[in-house]
Amino acid sequence: MTSVEFLAWVRGPMFQIAVAIFVVGVVIRLIEIFALGRKADLSEPRGGETMPGIVTVFRRSIPDPGTFKRSPFTIVLGYLFHIGLFITILFFVPHIELFHDVLGVQWPGLPTPLVDAVAIISIFAMLAILVNRLRNPVLRFLSNGEDYVVWAATLLPLVTGYFAFHRMLFPYQTMLGLHILSVEILLILFPFTKLMHFFTSFVARWYNGAAFGRRGVQS
């Protein structure tokens, strides 16, 4: 397989397979949750559910001061790589063009040097996250194979994208092919791993906020 053929394959059939697995998988996982549902709560409510649920959906993105004081490293690194991924995925101009091709919608991008800097910060944040996971006793204890696989699958698109953009390591065509393939691996792993938290954490936050809100506490 030549690098041109490889690129055509990851852009063509492989892309379609990955997206199909991602979409169908995520839908199945969400149906699995919503089909279970909740029993009606018969206790007399003190407060509402909907609004406190929505407030918690947003508020949980900000740590309470005590938690921040106890785990500043975990929290700062978490912010860095989440925001970094958000910017590099959604505001790199070639990515926007891809979204335009596939979804038919587009939005303004950020200057490429800025996205480049964000990518580098994200890569270093991801490396620090691994060190933190290996060194922090709680994280080391909690971690299983999936945590490391997902870590690698999240880092690879960043690194391959960076290399492709800077024409490093392999010829551009090959590196771009590897970059697209790494994203496809991420998409395929998505429905089967904790990557699902991208969707389910909002559901979880709502349920949490609703349960506490019903009892009159904003969680």
Binding site: R29, E32, I33, F34, A35, L36, G37, R38, K39, P63, T67, S71, T74, I75, G78, N136, V138, L139, L142, S143, N144, D147, K194, M196, H197, T200, S201, V203, A204, Y207, N208, A211
Partner: peptide, 16 residues
């Protein structure tokens, strides 16, 4: 139930 499934689907082992 739904909440339990959403919670278990969401844990990222952050340790907080």
């Amino acid at each position: 139930d739904g909440p339990i499934a959403s919670y278990l689907s969401s844990c990222v082992h952050c340790g907080l």
